[in-house]
Simulated assay, not measured.
Amino acid sequence: MLRWVALVLVLVLIALQVKLWSGNGGVHEVESLRAAVKKQGEDNDKLTQRNQALGADVDDLKHGEQAVEARARAELGLIKPGETFYQVVEKPGAQAPAPAASTGGR
């Protein structure tokens, strides 16, 4: 009788081990979920840094005239009264076009 009880307990232990290692919610699934959580955390950190940089840009644009002026010069090519605008045009086939430059008094 004692052998049968031991045999049943060993079979139950083997069945539980199989479920633990290969079943739904087993070790492999837990490890894959941990890897997914780690990757998502890294993605969240990158997006948090990007959001902070964008927030700093927004604050600069709201509260600083220099940031607005720099953007207007760089993106729109605007100049102040009394300044002279020079544009350098490269020959076709040149490596990289030169950015527009403005000089003059303030």
Score class of each variant (00 low, 15 high):
1 M>K: 03
2 L>Y: 12
3 R>F: 06
3 R>W: 06
5 V>M: 08
6 A>Y: 08
7 L>E: 13
7 L>F: 05
9 L>C: 12
11 L>D: 03
11 L>M: 09
11 L>G: 06
12 V>F: 04
12 V>D: 10
14 I>E: 06
15 A>G: 09
15 A>V: 15
15 A>R: 03
15 A>Y: 09
16 L>C: 10
17 Q>V: 14
17 Q>K: 09
18 V>I: 15
20 L>M: 14
21 W>F: 06
21 W>R: 15
22 S>T: 14
22 S>I: 14
24 N>F: 05
25 G>D: 03
27 V>C: 04
27 V>R: 09
27 V>W: 05
28 H>K: 10
29 E>H: 08
29 E>W: 10
29 E>G: 09
31 E>S: 04
33 L>F: 02
35 A>E: 14
35 A>F: 06
36 A>M: 07
37 V>T: 11
37 V>E: 13
37 V>I: 15
38 K>Y: 13
38 K>P: 05
39 K>V: 14
39 K>P: 01
40 Q>C: 00
40 Q>K: 08
41 G>F: 02
42 E>A: 08
42 E>S: 07
43 D>S: 01
43 D>W: 02
43 D>I: 01
44 N>D: 08
45 D>K: 04
45 D>G: 01
47 L>F: 02
47 L>Q: 10
49 Q>G: 07
49 Q>S: 11
52 Q>G: 03
52 Q>P: 00
53 A>T: 13
54 L>S: 03
56 A>C: 06
57 D>Y: 07
57 D>E: 08
58 V>W: 06
58 V>E: 14
58 V>F: 07
59 D>Q: 08
59 D>A: 15
60 D>R: 07
61 L>V: 11
62 K>W: 12
62 K>Q: 15
62 K>D: 15
62 K>P: 00
63 H>E: 12
63 H>R: 05
64 G>C: 04
67 A>M: 10
68 V>M: 05
68 V>Q: 11
70 A>G: 08
71 R>Y: 07
71 R>F: 04
71 R>Q: 07
73 R>T: 04
73 R>P: 00
73 R>D: 01
75 E>N: 02
76 L>D: 02
76 L>W: 01
77 G>I: 00
78 L>Q: 07
79 I>T: 01
79 I>K: 00
79 I>Q: 00
80 K>G: 00
82 G>V: 02
82 G>L: 05
84 T>I: 12
84 T>A: 02
85 F>I: 05
87 Q>S: 01
88 V>C: 02
89 V>K: 05
90 E>F: 03
90 E>K: 03
90 E>L: 12
91 K>S: 11
91 K>I: 15
92 P>D: 01
92 P>V: 03
92 P>F: 00
93 G>V: 13
93 G>S: 08
94 A>G: 09
95 Q>C: 05
95 Q>N: 11
96 A>C: 05
96 A>N: 13
96 A>G: 12
98 A>D: 10
98 A>C: 10
100 A>W: 00
101 A>T: 09
102 S>M: 13
102 S>C: 10
103 T>V: 14
103 T>Q: 06
106 R>E: 15
106 R>G: 10
